[in-house]
């Protein structure tokens, strides 16, 4: 336990000093973007990983968070709510939309829920695009208010946002951990494993699922605010189905239900997507292979990762023991079963 704490402390320290060591702001920018996606993944993990509800339109809440910052903190309507206050407001707005969508739909069977959320994910960005008198349509809203801290404006460097995100992720991890171990967290787990049984145990399944939906949405509302402020721009093409799938894939890669797994998964995919693929092509060109073009194979690589992970390690790189056991239930892995048993006893004790 102490060793683990030491490792965490070291990692935290390394992340804090990183921008001082690497003066290449594009790297810090990359980390900040990846941070926003980690926040998204932590939120989706509550819905998909903890409660086992499949949400295919998660990007809609990201859009709602981003657009609420853009509308409430810019010249658009002349409203200027401070950034720090928006960090409180936007999650609430997103959570309200989560409730709005969830209340009528959460009693649906799992796959139907997936489709409803998919539909919602299509409707929201398209509506932001179409209501051009309020949102500037395809141009999006730019020149958002810049955050400032103790009178110092953030400016255009990625570094201040990097620290904000670092802080939010730390808070997010704490919140997710506490939720997971709470009564609510156990109720989620029960619903995930057997909804019918959970209901018979006296769990109010609808309310419990709604809580997961709203809490998950609030994380992406938070991510939306920081992302919008950092980019100084919100445009409707940033929130499509592909973003929902990207975040879902991050969970799958890292390990659904495991907070650290989700973080690793989203970092790895962000790294591949935003750094490795764009940069490696350029390196190949610079090395004289002018006809090599990795970006042409981007979707191939991406698809292969998803398929092979699911086939050979569906529990993700860093699995949650519970979820791993669920994935391998059919295979009846004795070692895992024993592990689960001992963990269960540990909890009971």
């Amino acid at each position: 336990m102490t060793r683990r704490h030491a490792a965490l402390g070291f990692l935290g320290l390394a992340l804090v000093v990183y921008p001082f060591v690497d003066r290449n702001n594009s790297h810090v920018d990359f980390l900040a973007n990846a941070g926003a996606f980690i926040l998204l993944a932590l939120g989706l993990n509550i819905v998909v990983g903890f409660a086992g509800l499949l949400d295919l339109g998660y990007a809609a809440f990201f859009a709602i968070g981003s657009y609420s910052y853009a509308m409430l903190a810019s010249q658009q309507f002349g409203i200027h709510v401070p950034f720090w206050l928006m960090l409180l407001i936007a999650p609430v707005v997103a959570a309200l939309f989560g409730l709005l969508l969830g209340a009528p739909t959460l009693r649906l069977r799992g796959d139907y829920l997936a489709i409803v959320t998919l539909g919602f994910g299509e409707i929201v960005p398209q509506t932001f695009l179409n209501l051009s008198q309020y949102t500037n349509g395809p141009n999006g809203i730019s020149s958002l208010d810049q955050p400032s801290l103790f009178g110092h404006a953030f400016g255009f460097s990625a570094t201040p946002y990097y620290y904000v995100l670092l802080g939010l992720i730390a808070l997010g991890i704490l919140a997710a951990r506490n939720l997971q171990n709470s009564r609510l967290g156990r109720a989620w787990m029960a619903i995930r494993e057997d909804e019918l049984a959970a209901r018979h145990m006296g769990i109010n399944t609808t309310a419990t699922k709604l809580a997961a939906f709203a809490l998950g949405a609030s994380f992406s509302g938070l991510a939306g605010v920081v992302y919008a402020a950092k980019l100084d721009l919100v445009s409707p093409d940033e929130f499509g189905f592909n973003v929902s799938v990207l975040v879902l894939s991050m969970l799958v890669l890292g390990g659904m239900g495991n907070i650290w797994g989700v973080i690793v998964g989203s970092f790895v995919l962000s790294f591949i997507n935003s750094f490795l693929l764009p940069q490696s092509t350029s390196l190949a060109h610079a090395a004289g292979f002018v006809n090599v073009d990795f970006t042409n194979y981007r979707f191939m690589l991406y698809g292969v990762i998803l398929v092979t992970m699911m086939l050979f390690r569906p529990e993700g790189l860093i699995p949650s023991r519970q979820r791993a056991a669920e994935f391998h239930e059919a295979i009846l892995d004795p070692a895992l079963a024993a592990q689960e048993q001992s963990e269960y006893e540990g909890v009971a004790r």
């Binding site: 998909v48 499949l54 799992g110 796959d111 997936a114 799938v245 879902l248 894939s249 799958v252 659904m256 042409n296 194979y297 981007r298 979707f299 191939m300 991406y302 698809g303 292969v304 990762i305 998803l306 398929v307 992970m309 699911m310 086939l311 569906p314 669920e326 994935f327 059919a330």
Partner: peptide, 19 residues
Amino acid sequence: APRLAPLITAIGMSFILEN
């Protein structure tokens, strides 16, 4: 496997076919 697993695989296959 749980429902999510083949669904993700299907999304992966979709990417591969498109590519």
